[in-house]
Design a protein around this nucleic acid. Structure first.
Lengths: 218, 218
DNA sequence: AAGTTCAACGGACCTTGGTCCGCTTAATCA
DNA sequence: TGATTAAGCGGACCAAGGTCCGTTGAACTT
């Protein structure tokens, strides 16, 4: 029941991420985009989403997207940097839904619930969300090295730090948050479910247990 | 001080990995290898290790290795499957050192220490080991999706399960072990150290704290 | 020793991610 | 409205991972 900053974005909170988090709510993507470039960008995203849906995100090729969008290959790379960049951009829409849910949505996920309730709800929400869209998330995650620096990850981390602090957790908050975040890794979740036969319910129970242990004041 | 099976490989212990773990102590790599194939294999590994040392594992190319070893490209792929397979094979040597240290080595890592001591020592050992060889480990980890199924990972997981059980930890042991393993992820460790400015000491302190929380009987 | 077989070999070939650079054109300004 | 400029564009080009298949020769059989 202690929410010092209800309905305020997380980055307002003191967090261990130095100044790096100012740029978290996606400061605009690009300062400004020429009309044709913006048009191409949305066309490319539409086409890419369609192709990913039809053939699976794993089979998405940059040239395929370019051709289907009737655009040069260079244009795709200019806009999104690389394949992973395109995949992350594709995820952005769904990611924003999740973000608004835990930043400003109704309880138990949103700010009108106790920190511990929010922590518990956060795990269930993220696991279910990523698992539901695992095709894209796994494809984007193939990068591995970039994962810890993408905005969505930083936002989740920052949010966890805030909730842990609000919940009165003792210890190295940033490391505790990283531990929690690691538990939600889609490659782990997918592996546990599809290879090890676990259920979402079991993973959620494990999350709740973990939250309890990490939040314990003594 | 409770080591029911000192000096015995972990896989003898009841663990949550079904029958999958019988094949952990690397059952031989290949049943048998034709003389020329075996010769090529070791030459390839030597050459690859040298090249990785000179130019960095990230810049290792399959064709480069093949050429330097005076062997056809197809031979490299036949032997190691793909680039990640080669990198994993390269790591095998160092990985074995680590494994023998925590399976049969002296305390506090080896079996002549209490489970909790071994757990604490395990974290420090793995973090330092992987960080010391991060060039190769990070390159091999670029795969991301394969990580949870490679033998070295399964062995570490199984070992953690055993220690947790011996330490009397309550709860979903496999998930607790996965949580601990996630904390040791080299991509995370590297990020925290080189991007977030943390020290190995801080990571070890965080590990010890985490072990304490997960092992707590009540 | 000769024959048989099949793993191993090699390198041409294909695919795809990513770069480069000369051309085009939207946006801005005088 | 015409000139200027730099972002945007396209597709040829390169690099590297991965596949294929005809050939070679190690190992085993008789």
């Amino acid at each position: 029941m202690t929410e010092p900053l209800p309905h305020l974005p997380v980055s307002q909170e003191r967090d261990p991420l130095d100044g790096l988090l100012e740029l978290i709510p996606t400061p605009d993507d690009q300062p400004r985009l020429r009309a044709d470039a913006a048009r191409n960008r949305t066309r490319l995203l539409e086409v890419a989403a369609r192709l990913a849906g039809e053939c699976g995100a794993a089979n998405l090729t940059m040239e395929g997207v370019a051709t289907a969008a009737e655009v040069g290959k260079g244009t795709v790379f200019r806009r999104f940097g690389d394949r992973t960049g395109l995949l992350i951009a594709l995820l952005d829409h769904q990611e924003r839904e999740l973000q608004s849910a835990f930043l400003t949505g109704p309880p138990p996920l949103g700010p009108d619930a106790s920190p511990v309730e929010r922590l518990r709800a956060f795990g269930a929400a993220v696991v279910r969300h990523e698992y539901a869209h695992r095709d894209l998330y796994l494809a984007a995650r193939a990068d591995a090295l970039r994962h810890h620096t993408i905005p969505a990850t930083l936002l989740r981390l920052s949010h966890l730090c805030m909730l842990l602090r609000q919940a009165g957790a003792r210890g190295d908050i940033e490391l505790l948050a990283q531990t929690l975040l690691g538990y939600l890794d889609i490659t782990l979740v997918d592996h546990l479910i599809s290879r090890r036969g676990m259920t979402l319910e079991r993973l959620e129970a494990g999350w709740n247990d973990l939250v309890g242990r990490l939040v314990a004041v003594e």
